[in-house]
Design a protein around this nucleic acid. Structure first.
Lengths: 337, 337
DNA sequence: TTGTATAATGCAAGCGCTTACATTACGCTG
DNA sequence: CAGCGTAATGTAAGCGCTTGCATTATACAA
């Protein structure tokens, strides 16, 4: 069968000491005579010993591990924020375990259970909307959770993020301010996605303010992906009274729209303005460059990590943090024809 | 202090059965009377019980978890391949734990130890080059590892990936075949990156074949990033005899180059051809569209998962798989001026 | 009713580790 | 060199779970 991997006991026997000594050697090196320490350490290397994490966690009741569940790793904005999150955690001696839910409600529930079972000391979650059973479960397990990628002043749970609604509203004001009246939006699927919903609401807020009828908004929902943005653009533009400005739920969709516009011989921003959201690097390589809402993804990941670490270390309460977004007005936005 | 989260014992007591019964209830539901099962399950929900993974792993010696260490999550190609890897694992009842090494050798060692300690049944690693101590360690721990993102016929360890060298050579042949003689390359940092090294070698192979002196190649190394591609392009083009074709280590660098070209008023491909590698979605939204080497990232992730799962389940040996790449000749490549 | 085969359940060991407490070794002082 | 204080090390319990084996309940036949 599988040759057992070396255990504390193996090391102890080989080094001629007790398991307690080996354990101390590893965890509190100065509690042990230099001579013994050397011998033990040598044995550790020789045997290729690695402490069994589960066993340790079982007795210490701590894993120094934080779990994160993101919808998908394929979306660059999650990847970027998470990378920053991990870096900050690492700086404080914490580890990160990532799982992805593929935007599926049940899968998220399963991932939460899995991460908790694996001993996550805390959880990072994206957005406020999820299976409600998750919260009582986390409470019973006494695992704190922090919501990110959104900041909702009305939400009861703490979150570190930005206000999707006001961010989009500000952008929409600007666009409307430059004369646009016929608006459309290519949104990410709205169901169970409060970030997408917030962005849509923000746009409608601005329309209302400007005396436009929000129900006149041409709305189409498309999953994340360049190709989908292209398809949606074609749909929207192929109408009797096509919009003069198209808001996109994220930059990836916007880039797809931009591409299709070029393919169709529609000039941006002369014929139509296109607006993104996120300000990923990509938005600066398109031609024309994309007008978009800048979101401090890395900063968000970093701050989320700090909040969690503070809580875990000195019991500091988990606080909400609202991060500012700002508008990046670039060439894809112009006055309507 | 921290209120203990519920244990098997708590559930057992509350449901009036033994821990063994609860355990069976969870793992082999049909080994238990429907009546008891119901009662136990209700208690489980009521208490918000989640089995302690570490404890379970300790006794079963199996975690059904596979660890993956990637250089960074911020690179879309890793994210994409990994997502596919995870999906395939999930289909076979395995979980994924991801860690990122930030391209740092020591960090990778630490992550390997960490994942092994956490009970990873197997490991997915990127590329062949790493701290050599990792391999004996994995052997002693009896944790199989699979290398991906590259396939090197000369390597002793199994890998699932593609041959970076021949892929780039084929592309270079094509480019040289269309008349280019003055070549340059914007490579990812070569140190400890066999994929990058392979691509460079492939380019040199083709030069040699064509009677060009490989040492005449203008080479510059830049980390992953659009901005870096732009900077590198400016450097290369600003020479006495600028290259007529610029190979890039990946699409992201290429896109940066493309952008800078436009900014500098240099027309692609009339003034200079630009070639990428990876064929990420992005390469089709640039203008002109990017000529690049298509890599089946998702397929690679999927196959890697299958190899590992087969090995873990029926002891099937870990085999190497070479995946084919192909050329996507698009508008960014043209004949030299 | 009793006996028996079988299904359901319980008991208890042990997975690899940490740590409180007990024991031993060491270095001094008087 | 005895006696003591302190540092180093050892002993053993127990973290939460699974599982082989022992025990008890159940169903059915005689």
């Amino acid at each position: 069968m599988k040759p057992q991997s070396p255990t504390l006991f193996d090391v102890a026997r080989r080094a001629g000491v007790s398991t307690a000594t080996v354990s101390r050697c590893l965890n509190f090196p100065d509690k042990v005579t230099p001579k013994t320490r050397e011998r033990v350490m040598a044995t550790v290397t020789e045997l290729g010993y690695a402490p069994n994490f589960g066993a340790r966690a079982m007795v210490t009741q701590r894993t120094n591990t934080i779990g994160a569940i993101i919808p998908t790793m394929e979306n660059a904005i999650f990847a970027r924020g998470l990378q920053a999150f991990q870096e900050e955690l690492g700086a404080h001696g914490f580890n990160l375990m990532v799982a992805s839910s593929s935007y599926q409600r049940e899968l998220e529930v399963a991932q939460v259970r899995s991460l908790v079972a694996r001993g996550a000391d805390a959880l990072l979650l994206i957005g406020h909307i999820r299976d409600p059973q998750i919260y009582p479960f986390l409470e019973k397990q006494d695992v704190p959770a922090l919501v990110t990628w959104t900041y909702d002043p009305d939400a009861t749970r703490p979150s570190v993020g930005f206000n999707n609604r006001t961010a989009m509203r500000d952008m929409a004001r600007k666009v409307i301010g430059s004369g646009h009246r016929h608006l459309a939006m290519i949104s990410a699927p709205l169901a169970r996605n409060d970030r997408a919903q917030g962005r849509l609401l923000g746009l409608k807020d601005a329309m209302e303010e400007a005396g436009l009828n929000p129900s006149k908004l041409h709305l189409t929902e498309k999953p994340y992906g360049i190709e989908n943005g292209a398809t949606a653009f074609a749909e929207l533009i192929d109408q009797d009274r096509p919009p003069t400005a198209i808001f996109c739920g994220n930059d990836v969709l916007a880039v797809g729209a931009l591409r299709r516009a070029r393919e169709m011989g529609i000039e941006v921003p002369r014929d139509v303005s296109i607006i993104g959201f996120d300000d990923i690097e990509l938005s600066q390589v398109t031609h024309p460059m994309l007008t978009t809402v800048h979101v401090p993804h890395r900063e968000m990941g970093k701050q989320a990590a700090q909040v969690l670490v503070r809580h875990l270390i000195d019991g500091h309460p988990i606080e909400s943090i609202a991060l500012a977004t700002d508008l990046r007005l670039r060439a894809s936005l112009g006055p309507p024809r």
